[in-house]
């Protein structure tokens, strides 16, 4: 078996109909599962940046990136550093939590994780939390012990290489 790991790829594209489908397909046909994808305006007018996070074998990823680059609307493909220390990676989640016995614990957790309460209702709250995927996962795990999670919406991952890493590239 080939080694599997998590890869983050940044793709700059012209935002035309069907681009997302074309790019996603190239990962899918080699059996790469896309665990997160975000699309948004970039620093260049007309171009949007897709940040794609996939799980899959290490050996084919370079070749898939080259195939993605062949999609006519794709302007640039840059793999983001595979080393956690060399990149900044953030995701935001909105979490709707229903109070159970331990309302206080919920507020404490939000504070410890530096979350924000963005809505307060009779029966519960909505928390906004930002961080690396691992932080969000830890928060979800803990809060589910104090309250009942009703709904989670996550933005997907935004990531980029750190200054010193991207300069070296």
């Amino acid at each position: 078996m080939n080694k599997k790991s998590r890869h983050i790829v940044s793709v700059l594209v012209y935002n035309k109909a069907g681009v997302l489908r074309k790019v996603a397909h190239l990962f899918a046909r080699r059996g790469y599962n896309i665990s997160s994808i975000t699309v948004g305006k970039s620093e260049i007018p007309d171009l949007v940046r897709m940040i794609i996070v996939v799980e899959g074998e290490d050996n084919a990823i370079d070749q898939i990136e080259k195939q993605v680059y062949k999609v006519i609307e794709v302007y640039k493909v840059s793999p983001i550093s595979s080393n956690v220390e060399d990149r900044v990676e953030r995701e935001m989640a909105l979490i709707k939590v229903k109070f159970e016995d331990n309302k206080q614990e919920i507020y404490q957790l939000v504070e410890i994780f530096r979350g924000k309460i963005v809505d307060v209702g009779q029966e519960g709250i909505i928390v906004e939390i930002t961080g690396a995927t691992s932080k969000i996962e830890a928060f979800v795990d803990l809060i589910s012990k104090s309250g009942k999670i009703i709904e989670i919406a996550r933005t997907g991952i935004a990531a980029m290489d750190r200054w010193d890493v991207s300069q070296g590239k």
């Binding site: 070749q63 080259k66 195939q67 062949k70």
Partner: peptide
Amino acid sequence: IDPAEIGK
């Protein structure tokens, strides 16, 4: 001419 062929 196609970089995606190299090393495939």
